[in-house]
Nucleic acid binder design. Sequence first.
DNA 1: CGAAGTGTTGAAGCAAATCAATTTTCGTGG
DNA 2: CCACGAAAATTGATTTGCTTCAACACTTCG
Lengths: 241, 241
Amino acid sequence: VQNPFVAKLCAGIDLRDDDRRALEAASARTRTIGPREQIIGEGDRPNDVHLIIEGFAARAKTLPGGDRQIMALLLPGDSCDLHVAILGEMDHDIVAITKCTLVDIPRHVIEELLGSPTLARALWWSTLVDEAVLREWLVSMGRRPADEQAAHLFCELYIRLATVGRADEDSYDLPLTQEELGDVLGLSIVHVNRVLQKLKADGLVERRGSRVRLLDRTRLAEFAAFNPNYLHLRGTNAGPA
Amino acid sequence: VQNPFVAKLCAGIDLRDDDRRALEAASARTRTIGPREQIIGEGDRPNDVHLIIEGFAARAKTLPGGDRQIMALLLPGDSCDLHVAILGEMDHDIVAITKCTLVDIPRHVIEELLGSPTLARALWWSTLVDEAVLREWLVSMGRRPADEQAAHLFCELYIRLATVGRADEDSYDLPLTQEELGDVLGLSIVHVNRVLQKLKADGLVERRGSRVRLLDRTRLAEFAAFNPNYLHLRGTNAGPA
DNA sequence: CGAAGTGTTGAAGCAAATCAATTTTCGTGG
DNA sequence: CCACGAAAATTGATTTGCTTCAACACTTCG
């Protein structure tokens, strides 16, 4: 499957061919934005729903002191703001991490898509999975030591990227700086660096450039107490393309 | 307003009288469970949606090592599992913290309720607010020191409880042990104790028994960098009944 | 009255932050 | 293609926030 939304939604819900075509049609017109650009800001009331086709983005909040926390990583196939139609205004920012290709889907097109029960179910499913991921991150931050938390994140990203065809047998591209990783994990830059070194020394994860290589997935999952059930995938879509 | 769902949903969406009556009718048949009892467990595929009428419950996950993280506090008017119909199986537990009064709403009744566009919108709204709260907790865990995190939680609970008529001018009941508070905040029991003492010494929050008294709401909100926008309430429902 | 659960206190240890340099990588223009 | 400057990664030293361990006090309730 080429289109990452189709790939992602199919991993959760069995879509009919016409649903796939409708999705593909709705996400045909893309645009590109550069790294660090803001996609939506806190307080905005966007008219379109934004979807990531290619690249990495993040939900983030910045505290008065300047500390930033990333609350979600948005990968190809993820939606930024399916919700904001109901909530009225954004309570956080969405920023591109890398150069991103995205589509803006007008609200009325979304309404049309929701006309198909299976598609409505699939979109509903995807927001619920986002929430489940958020819960798992909270568990990681609250109760896992930094190295296990990082290991857990690498496991999660492997599966999420694999379901949209962005991972191979044991590696994937993760173009985040250590500072950005720190904003995800709630750690300082320096400590991220040391945690990464430890995971490498333990033969679990290696990072060269932006490539993350899982050296021993079984041991890594065990170390992180990683259980993929919270991703709510059907069957064995957990493997690489 | 008596019924906590009606109160809560009205705080976000303007409900019509017939919507309120439908909600009240759907939540008429209640039952009670004792403290520490499990409402739903990980792996369950519940048939009914569970709503809290009275008492406190929590979403929680327990790690292999025995550490527990509470991912949400469920207050009167909150729903436990509006989502699970789509996700299939629960990926976490829901446990009563105190004695709870709850209602079990069969799936088909929910479908009926969703027939009203305003009600559908209101229920949708409530799940989105749950998610926003979760994001804010993640920010707190990741980037706020323990005392600010606790202060932030006390601010949030004040507003949430006030919107369902469970708070007075400057205090509310929070029947959690320090251990349970630690599971919410991701802290050890000992540290929770010390943080509470500090907040009291600073004249911000006092806890006697299960009563939480906000001694100076302005300073407390400032200390915690608390901004209630993420709760997405209409107007000034933020005050006590 | 005793026992279990909860709250409190002190001391010691550890994980992670902070501070401060230094090195490496990378993008850019000459 | 190389040189330069900026961003990112790395390292060491120090400090701090939080945990752990251990003991003890208070409350509640059977």
